[in-house]
Every structure is written in structure tokens, then in C-alpha cells.
Design a protein around this nucleic acid. Structure first.
Lengths: 93, 93
DNA sequence: ATGTGACTATAAGTCCGTC
DNA sequence: TGACGGACTTATAGTCACA
């Protein structure tokens, strides 16, 4: 498995686990929201320095990004609805 | 400690341990010899894909590149002249 | 809140060389 | 063998508008 994919998977895993959005993480790490999106979709080939910053922002060791995903595992594509980081939650109907 | 420095240290550590030159490793990994030199001197910020290739070439897990150097540790700057310490070890007076 | 294409600036990475 | 530099090409960093 390509390492880039593993990193992407882990970034998303940890981020979602923290209950924060791409936007929030990107902002904290000082990078663009759309770049974070690309990174998690494996369409970027990030440098070590960049991953270092993101790891620091997430407060994890860089090695956390190389954890092998369980076979068939999938990270959620978006944050679970239940979390409420912000924004007025409109009641359904 | 900056991760870039850790990676650089480990690449050199493993390479020297294998007894191969920068040039040989670079050639095998399909990268430029001067770039390998720069990388080990921490003057470049390599991408994940590249480190992946180097790890593969060295036949190690990528995580090997993130091993923390012991305090005060130094990698040799060059390969040892001889691979065989065979010479009779002279006792210290 | 995220995916995506287009874009520019900057750094990665190559290739030549010298010491 | 490896440090280092210059000129060069290509890829990534980083930003934006819009779906």
C-alpha cells in the first residue's frame, strides 16, 4: 500500500476522532482548507515539514500517520452529525 | 527536534550500516546523487513518495526513518574505509 | 463542511560541475 | 566519497471561486 494513502487515512482518522473539521484543522496548522481536502483524498504528495506541522497541530507523533489501516477500513468522509463543533443546528421539520 | 533532521540522520545511519555510498543508494532509488547528499545534510524537504522509495530501496519500513537519534549521537560523515575491522585490535597501553 | 479545477509562487528534484 | 554550488525543469505549496 502506498504510504501517501496511509498518511491520508490517518490524518482523517485522527482529525475526525478529534471532532474537528478540515477547515478548523487547516486553519490551526496554517494551511489552506482546500489543501487539507486534497491531502486527505491522496491527491497531494506532502513534504515532511508539512506533515510535521500537521502532526504538531493534532498533538500526535508523526509516526501516528503511518499506522496501517485495518483491512477494509474506511474513514468517514465527513464529520459525524452528532458532533457539534459549531453552527446553528437546524431542527428537522 | 525537527523531523527533517531525524529523517536525514536515519537515512544516513541505515545507508552507512549497509555499507553503500550516497551515489549507489541514489542510483538504486532513482534519484540524483547530489540530492541524496542534500537530503542527508538536511537542506532539502523531501516528499512522502520520495521517502517511500528510499525506504523501499533500503528494504526497511518507512517508520525506521523516524527513530529518534540518541542524545549526542552522530552519524559518520563518510563510509568507513574498510568493511573489515579484522585487524588485530591493539590494546590500549 | 468538503470536493475540485485553475492558477501562481516557491521549493523539490535534476544535471552539470569543482573541490 | 561526499560537500557544495549554479542553472535548469518539474512538482508541490498555497490560494481562490464555485460546485
Amino acid at each position: 500500500m502506498k504510504t501517501r494513502a496511509i498518511v491520508a487515512w490517518n490524518v482523517r482518522r485522527i482529525r475526525v476522532n478529534r471532532g474537528i473539521s478540515q477547515e478548523q484543522l487547516a486553519w490551526k496548522a496554517g494551511i489552506d482548507r482546500s489543501y487539507m481536502s486534497s491531502l486527505e483524498r491522496q491527491s497531494k504528495n506532502p513534504t515532511i515539514d508539512l506533515l510535521d506541522r500537521i502532526a504538531e497541530t493534532l498533538d500526535v507523533q508523526l509516526s501516528e500517520f503511518f499506522v496501517l489501516p485495518p483491512k477494509g477500513a474506511r474513514s468517514p468522509k465527513t464529520l459525524p452529525k452528532s458532533r457539534k463543533p459549531a453552527g446553528p443546528r437546524r431542527k428537522k421539520k
